[in-house]
């Protein structure tokens, strides 16, 4: 019986190897995915190399250069401190990405574990889901505001607040997939063949539950970048003078009519980054979703 289960697993693995090459080709030929990848690569490049390429000081302020519209001297104009918005956006890129990546990692891993265990072992479901329900019962931003107010403003605290806020989401998404797959034919087959719970869960159910999670994580990355901006807007984001994109918009909001460039450019930077991530996530989904693979 154990042998049979292993055979099924091996067959899966073999199929994985064969399809890996195909997947790679499909990845490279997927237009949306490639556009998304290029956008993310550019933003990531900006985040890593921006401070080296554009060496000005994003914190340098001057009363004389306040509210300058975009020009050859200040590409994206200046803010009410007289700081260069272009420099602030390039130097702020890594922070926005960092916050997004951290939140995705924490909620992805944490949500998978909680969701998988909770969806598979129904006895534990009630306990886990009650805690998740309690967290989810707070609208995520309210929770984040409360946590940020309690812990003080700072990058780490923003990450903690957003991760706690979004964890129930990923957990529920994974749990839902796991629950609907738990009674599927091939899982029943593996179970009949005597596969262990761990093997069934991690080998058979989870790989097939990843698609909704990946889709959801693209959203969560988006939310994290957007929510970081919203938290800054409400005054609980990374502390000034940190040039995070959210801070730049928040600081420019009073001047949105008279100096719109302060808010427009970081808004576009956020939108473009999130757009790239979403394209990339969609592409991944199209290519890697096992049910689409079987087509």
């Amino acid at each position: 019986m154990t042998d049979a289960a292993t055979t099924i697993g091996d067959a899966h693995a073999a199929a994985d190897h064969r399809s890996a090459w195909r997947s790679m080709r499909r990845l490279l030929s997927h237009k949306g995915l490639m556009i998304g990848a290029v956008v993310i690569a550019l933003v990531a490049l900006l985040a890593l190399a921006g401070p080296l390429l554009f060496t000005g000081d994003p914190l340098k302020l001057s009363y004389r250069t306040r509210f300058r519209p975009p020009s050859s001297e200040f590409w994206f104009g200046t803010d009410h401190y007289g700081r260069d918005i272009f420099l602030r956006i390039t130097h702020g890129a890594h922070l926005s990405l960092l916050i997004g990546v951290m939140v995705v990692l924490i909620t992805g891993v944490g949500g998978t574990l909680i969701g998988a265990v909770s969806g598979y072992f129904q006895r534990l479901d009630a306990y886990f889901m009650r805690v998740m329900d309690a967290l989810m019962a707070f609208p995520s931003l309210m929770l984040a505001i409360g946590i940020a107010a309690a812990l003080g403003s700072g990058v780490v605290n923003v990450v903690i607040a957003l991760s706690i806020a979004y964890l129930p989401r990923t957990a529920r998404v994974v749990r839902a997939s796991v629950m609907s797959l738990r009674h599927s034919e091939y899982v029943e087959a593996a179970r009949v063949l005597g596969a262990s719970h761990g093997r069934i869960l991690f080998r058979h159910i989870l790989p097939n539950s990843m698609a909704p999670l990946i889709i959801d994580l693209t959203f969560i990355f988006a939310y994290a970048v957007l929510a970081d901006a919203a938290l800054s807007f409400l005054g609980v984001g990374p502390p000034p003078p940190t040039p995070s994109w959210g801070n730049i918009i928040a600081e420019g909001r009073d001047y949105v009519v008279d100096a719109p460039w302060i808010t427009i450019f970081p808004g576009l930077a956020i939108s473009l980054t999130v757009l790239g991530l979403n394209l990339f996530g969609d592409g991944l989904r199209d290519v890697l979703d096992p049910r689409l693979n079987t087509m």
Binding site: L226, A229, A230, S271
Partner: peptide, 8 residues
Amino acid sequence: GVSLPTFW
């Protein structure tokens, strides 16, 4: 639509 910050 999902890429635009709501408050922006």
